[in-house]
Simulated assay, not measured.
Amino acid sequence: MSFNTLFLDRDGVINRKIDDGYVLKTEDIQIMPGIKDFLAMANNMFLQIVVVTNQRCVGRKMLKEEELLSIHKDINDRTGNFINDFFFCPHLDEDQCDCRKPKDGLFLKAAENYAVDFSRSWMIGDSVSDLIPAKNLGIKTIYIGAGINSCADYTLASTNDICTVFLPG
């Protein structure tokens, strides 16, 4: 089984989301259950693994871009260095940019840098705004969370269950 690109949201998928807050330093990072094993498996199934993440904490001047890059490096180190790239939107909602999810700018930026075939790619996110651009681009989607997400091809209660979607059978 071979796929093209695995797109991942960051907070809530790779690392724990901080309620009413942001990951502002490496000490704030808590890797989600099952993610390290899933990324090791995905590395053998996908040509590239990229993160697409909204990080308005940069636009709010709570975090410098260099600090965000350091956090991303630490996340990659802690999960086995399988992530090829992190694409992030630093903008606020009112900036009206093209990259803030649910717009598709981060996905298109990834496609400028990698040979992305959206029809053979997957997106894993924990909010509808993660999945809307993926669905619009023809990417298969996995929603991590409770309830129903109309944009999801698969809904899983936990990151621990992601591997099951890709196992044969």
Rank of each mutant, 00 (worst) to 15 (best):
M1F: 10
S2D: 13
F3A: 10
F3Q: 05
F3P: 03
T5K: 05
T5P: 09
F7P: 06
L8M: 03
D9H: 02
D11S: 07
V13P: 00
I14L: 12
R16D: 13
K17Q: 15
G21K: 12
K25D: 12
T26W: 00
D28N: 14
I29E: 04
Q30V: 15
M32Q: 13
M32C: 14
P33D: 15
I35V: 12
I35D: 01
D37R: 00
F38V: 04
A40R: 11
A42C: 09
N43P: 01
N44G: 13
N44W: 00
M45Q: 15
F46G: 09
L47T: 14
Q48M: 01
Q48E: 09
V50H: 07
T53D: 09
T53K: 11
Q55V: 00
R56K: 12
C57E: 14
G59A: 04
G59N: 01
K61I: 00
K64C: 00
K64T: 06
E65S: 01
E67C: 00
E67V: 00
L69I: 06
L69H: 15
S70H: 12
S70A: 15
S70D: 15
K73W: 02
N76K: 02
R78E: 10
T79V: 14
T79K: 01
G80W: 04
G80K: 03
N84L: 01
F86N: 00
F86I: 00
F87I: 08
P90E: 05
P90A: 05
E94D: 14
D95S: 03
Q96M: 08
R100V: 10
K101L: 09
L106S: 08
L106D: 07
F107K: 07
L108P: 01
A111L: 01
N113H: 14
N113T: 11
A115Q: 12
D117G: 01
F118A: 10
F118H: 07
R120Y: 02
W122S: 05
M123G: 06
G125C: 08
D126W: 08
V128C: 04
V128F: 10
L131S: 08
I132R: 15
I132T: 15
P133F: 04
K135L: 05
K135R: 15
G138F: 05
K140E: 11
T141D: 11
T141Y: 10
I142F: 03
I144M: 08
I144T: 04
G145F: 10
G145S: 10
A146C: 07
S150C: 04
A152Y: 08
A152N: 11
Y154Q: 11
L156H: 07
L156A: 06
A157H: 08
A157T: 10
T159H: 04
T159Y: 07
D161M: 08
C163I: 15
T164C: 03
G169V: 11
